[in-house]
Amino acid sequence: MSEIILTPKEQPQVPLEANTITPDSFAGKNIDEISNIAIWNGNKQFRLSEFFDVQGESAENPSEIKIIIDGDIYNTKRIGQSMTAGEITVKGNANMYVGAEMDGGKITVEGNVGSWAGQDMKGGELTVLGNAGDYVGSAYRGDWRGMSGGLITIHGNVGNEIAEYMLGGKMVIKGNVAIMPGIHMNGGLLIIEGNVVARTGGEMKGGTIVVKGVIDEFLAGFKYLGVERNIEVEGEIIEGAFYKFKGDLATKGASGIVYAAVAGNGHIVPK
């Protein structure tokens, strides 16, 4: 695998939009050509080399390219957007839309990311070691088809409306979640290892949500199906005892499933 190292210079106050930082757009270009790739700073375009030092060696095929962003790019959006192969590692924070519309390959962010990480994801792997904002693995605004494949793992906490309109693939949140995880979910698997504030699976019609932590408030539109032990979801066994709910019966023809760990969730079961 050939490595291309981008060392960020100072991040500008008006954010950068760098959907061209992908193995796909770097493939077949030499380092000079990569340095000249255009990125947006507000409404003006600049060369990549204005904001990053570019080193390393490129390759013909995107699957042979690993891009290492060696620093914090907290004000750069759209890293790895639409990538289909190869690898990107960010050794710091990144802004919105990391791995949006991603179809393959692997992205690892060592810090935090902004909202819409993995928006409309179709395949590949996105891992964030820090926190993420709202709308992880969501749909594009106004679309009713969200993430359809791939794997998103967030090690920290996330915000609202993650897995919005999710259709397929898998998302694992190791930290806590704000409100409305799996809103309008239609398929796929969402595993939350931490706690959820409220509205788990609001208006969901399909798919599975597993919550290992505590759900503060639950929606009345679900149907309680009893306790299940060592559940099997999408071919994997999750150990422990879970309350099982079906819903959200506020929507016509809903058959989504929410599992909530028995430990800590006694208050959401009907008396």
């Binding site: 409220a198 208006e203 929606l219 009345a220 539109g221 506020a250 929507t251 009907p270």
Partner: peptide, 22 residues
């Protein structure tokens, strides 16, 4: 608001709701 609307919609579609008070 969302919690109440969710319960109202479930009731409208003929379902029981989980809780005595929403």
């Amino acid at each position: 608001d969302y919690e109440l609307l969710d319960a109202m919609r479930a009731v409208l579609l003929g379902h029981e709701i989980l809780y005595d008070e929403v």
